[in-house]
């Protein structure tokens, strides 16, 4: 009650500009983008808390993973800690043309490829390789695709055309697109619980690794020639007869106003760097240990105090 009264009194006096907390360039909130997968949420809280500890005001805004880049180019949002080459490359590059700032690449490498749970190897031992997988295509068939196998592909707007790759490699598969990532996981969970053969689109690092055991399927390693020269690769008559890169980039992105408005914070986000193991550990705390992303961020920062310190030096 005392505080309440005090509060009213303070409010009357304090309509003047807000009290400065620490020596920061601007009290304007830095808006950090949040997407709907675990690692991104935890990492964005980690960065947010580091900036808050320095005295900056931080806000979080949820966003669609494609729309966010344009929003950053427009200064509506300020920082994204995880931009993926595989699924976001075109939107990212388009936004950079419109003014968004590329703040550099993490040490973490990403990979996106066809993926099978390990139990599949019991019935189709050669499935870690695309030719071996193709040999038992019928195991993966459903009523609609028979006798072809079914490949559960990513949402159609992620810019990957697996139907083309299936055609180029003359595989006995039919690629079906899901509407969203959650659909992939629901399919995987259902098949996994019943030990039914399934091959689907997956990527690393993500939370799936900590919940399901499985491996990527190896395709011919991509080279520029694969896409220009038909004679390259297993099929002499087609281009595109190869897999996705084994290591894609994971970048950070910022709004054009970031460096001007908060130079001190910009120096930090330039140094922020996560490795595959660090990202996996952050996601694990939420997906396996059941922490809230915000709690996980605090726990992660305690465990990796030296890493955090190296950013703010």
């Amino acid at each position: 009650m005392k505080n309440l009264l005090k509060g009213v009194a303070v409010a009357a006096l304090m309509l003047a500009p807000g009290a400065a907390m620490a020596e920061v360039e601007s009290d304007e909130p830095i808006i950090i983008v949040q997407n709907n997968w675990t690692s991104q949420l935890v990492l964005s809280y980690v960065v947010g808390k580091v900036l808050e500890d320095m005295g900056y005001t931080v806000e979080y805004a949820p966003s669609d993973s494609q729309l966010q880049f344009q929003a950053m180019a427009d200064n509506d949002m300020d920082f994204q800690v995880e931009a993926w080459e595989g699924s976001m490359k075109s939107a990212f590059e388009k936004a950079v043309e419109n003014g968004m700032v590329d703040v550099g690449t993490h040490s973490a490498e990403t990979r996106e490829e066809w993926w099978i749970p390990n139990y599949v190897l019991e019935t189709c031992p050669e499935a870690t390789n695309w030719e071996g997988l193709n040999a038992c295509a019928e195991q993966f068939s459903t009523a609609e695709t028979k006798p072809n196998g079914r490949f559960v592909g990513p949402p159609a707007d992620w810019g990957k055309n697996y139907a083309d790759r299936v055609k180029s490699l003359e595989m006995d598969f039919e690629a079906i697109n899901v509407g969203q990532a959650a659909t992939l996981w629901a399919e995987l969970q259902s098949a996994y619980d019943r030990k039914e053969p399934i091959v689907l689109f997956n990527w690393t690092p993500n939370f799936i690794e900590s919940k399901f055991e499985g491996t990527f399927v190896d395709f011919p390693k991509p080279e520029p020639a694969c896409f220009d020269d038909a004679s390259w690769g297993p099929n002499p008559n087609a281009t595109g007869d190869c897999g996705a890169p084994h290591s894609g980039w994971l970048k950070k992105a910022a709004s054009p106003r970031f460096e001007e408005e908060w130079p001190g914070a910009y120096a930090v986000i330039e140094k922020v760097d996560f490795s595959n193991a660090q990202i996996a550990a952050a996601a694990l705390m939420v997906d396996v240990d059941g922490m809230e992303p915000e709690e996980a961020a605090e726990a992660w920062m305690e465990k990796n105090a030296d890493v955090v310190a190296s950013w703010t030096e």
């Binding site: 505080n3 309440l4 005090k6 509060g7 303070v10 409010a11 304090m14 309509l15 807000g18």
Partner: peptide, 9 residues
Amino acid sequence: GFKKVGLDL
């Protein structure tokens, strides 16, 4: 809470 507008409430 009203911290942002200077109120301890």
